[in-house]
Simulated scan of single mutants.
Amino acid sequence: MIWVYKYDQNYVWQAGEEIEVDIENGEQVPEGYTQTQPTDGLYIAKYDPDKEAWFESATQEYIDSLQPAPCPPSDIELLKQQNADLLQQLAESEKRAEEQSKTTAELVMLLTEKGVI
């Protein structure tokens, strides 16, 4: 006994319509069936009788349409992103404050050298 896999007039696999054939007792594989098992992971399996192989016939657009929409970020993920943004802003503010302090020190030194203060 072997399993055979049905395809329609366009050679598209008809999932769930597999049957067992007893070729040892002389049964023939019926028309529209093949002994070649469809490959796992195909979205729309199509049979090529010349190559005796199944291939993917679904378009990438169709495959993409079957993928679930991404979930919105959780509250924790949002808080993590906000925290990272705030830390970045804080680092930038500290850098600016350091640069400003340096500039002020240089100005005081120049004014002192010139005798203004």
Rank of each mutant, 00 (worst) to 15 (best):
T36M: 14
L107D: 09
Q82F: 07
L79D: 10
W54L: 02
A69I: 03
I44W: 07
K95G: 12
R96E: 15
Q14M: 14
A84E: 12
T34M: 05
E98D: 07
K114F: 05
Q82P: 00
E98M: 06
L107E: 08
V29Y: 03
Y47M: 07
P30V: 05
P30Y: 04
T104S: 05
V12F: 13
I23N: 06
D48V: 03
Q60K: 15
L79W: 15
Y5G: 01
K51S: 07
L86T: 13
Q82V: 02
T112E: 15
E106I: 06
E27N: 04
T59D: 03
L66Q: 14
Q89V: 07
I76C: 01
E99F: 10
E56V: 08
A84T: 03
T34Q: 08
Q9M: 12
V29N: 00
L111K: 13
A58N: 05
S93Q: 04
D48Y: 11
S57A: 06
P68G: 03
D8N: 09
P38R: 11
E27G: 05
P30Q: 03
I44M: 09
Y33G: 06
E52G: 10
Q14G: 01
T112D: 15
P68R: 01
P68Y: 00
E27R: 06
L107F: 02
A91I: 02
Q67F: 07
Q82R: 15
E31Q: 13
L90N: 13
L87I: 13
Y62S: 15
Q88H: 08
A58E: 02
K6E: 10
M1T: 14
I117Y: 06
F55P: 10
A53P: 00
E24C: 10
L86E: 08
Y11C: 13
N10E: 12
E24D: 13
E77C: 00
E77D: 10
W13E: 00
C71H: 12
S65W: 08
G115Q: 04
Q88E: 09
G41L: 00
A45F: 02
M1F: 08
D64H: 08
A15G: 09
K102R: 08
S74C: 07
S57W: 05
A84G: 06
